[in-house]
């Protein structure tokens, strides 16, 4: 059987008293684009650090293409863009990328990398004279210049404006189209929703949901049914499908797993004043998934 691109088995990592990653298991088959979605401090960067061999796990096992992560990186199978840093002063974009390319066995031609990272024409610019967005693109270019099979990006679009973000994802889709395995972390829900084949939601160092973005929305399926009411409202929480009840002023928001049944029950009870039904979005799912853990 062909090895998975990434395989994490029950990896755990603590920093002093804080358990950053807690028995996390994740397998990514080759060619998939996976979003690692979670709030700040969820353990995304630590997970990425362990799968790249930068951080040794306290327990559990990280494997890339059937190899020890450090070994896989040495063989040029992975390219990565850490959350920050990695740029040095006093060299040009071209010099830096040529150097990184030279460490791999079969790198991409410089021109192609510059085009993919939307940096054409900037190769003679000093790295320390670039704007924030341009610097981010150089960092992206360093991750892909070696033409690795697995590309790992930790919060790749954090410093980018909307336009730059759009261009960045178009470059990423080109790579995904070439059969690359891509893992990126983000706390932007729309990015995970739009760009990934599969979304892995992590919180407090554990996987709390794993599937396509449609599947994740369905797991939690929190369609919101809102009505205007007066008086006692707690009975609304017992209606079919209702999972949570929120009262804001005279509006009651019912988070429902079965909105049809909820609406029918409301109608039977004659309580459909100013009825409003809002479909679930990933943000709701995300909030629900990560909030659930605090209870």
């Amino acid at each position: 059987m062909e090895n998975d691109a990434v395989s994490l088995t029950a990896v755990t990592k603590s920093f002093r008293a804080v358990r950053a990653v807690d028995g996390l298991t994740l397998a990514i088959p080759r060619g998939q684009t996976v979003a690692l979605l979670g709030p700040n401090g969820a353990g995304k960067s630590t997970t990425i650090g362990m799968l790249l061999g930068l951080i040794p796990p306290d327990s559990g096992k990280a494997v890339l293409f059937g190899l020890d992560p450090g070994q896989a990186v040495r063989q040029g199978l992975a390219g990565a863009m850490p959350q920050e840093g990695g740029l040095i002063p006093r060299v040009t974009v071209g010099e830096l990328l040529t150097f990184v390319a030279g460490t791999y066995r079969a790198p991409l031609p410089l021109g192609q990398v510059l085009a993919l990272a939307q940096m054409t024409g900037l190769e003679n610019r000093r790295v320390d004279k670039l704007s924030g967005g341009q610097a981010q693109r150089v960092r992206f270019a360093m991750a892909l210049v070696g033409d690795p099979r697995l590309i790992v990006l930790d919060e790749p679009t954090a410093a980018l404006d909307v336009e730059a973000r759009r261009e960045f994802w178009s470059g990423m889709r080109t790579l995904a189209g070439r059969g690359k395995t891509i893992l990126f972390s983000t706390h932007y829900l729309d990015e995970a929703d739009e760009q990934a084949d599969r979304v892995v939601v992590i919180d407090r160092g554990r996987v709390v949901a794993d599937g396509t973005s449609a599947e994740i929305k369905k797991i939690v399926a929190l369609t919101t049914v809102s009505v205007t009411t007066s008086g006692e409202v707690s009975w609304l929480g017992d209606l079919p499908g209702v999972r949570r009840l929120e009262v804001r002023g005279d509006r009651v928001h019912l988070r429902s797993a079965d909105p049809d049944a909820t609406v029918m029950a409301l109608a039977r009870a004659g309580a459909v004043r100013d009825l409003e039904v809002t479909p679930a979005d990933l943000e709701d799912a995300f909030v629900a998934l990560t909030a659930k853990e605090t209870v």
């Binding site: 930068l54 920050e84 990695g86 460490t103 791999y104």
Partner: peptide
Amino acid sequence: GEDRSAGWLRQLRLTPLG
């Protein structure tokens, strides 16, 4: 020291260079 602060040594660890 500069390279360490800039994350350059970490970046090098992500290339095939040992």
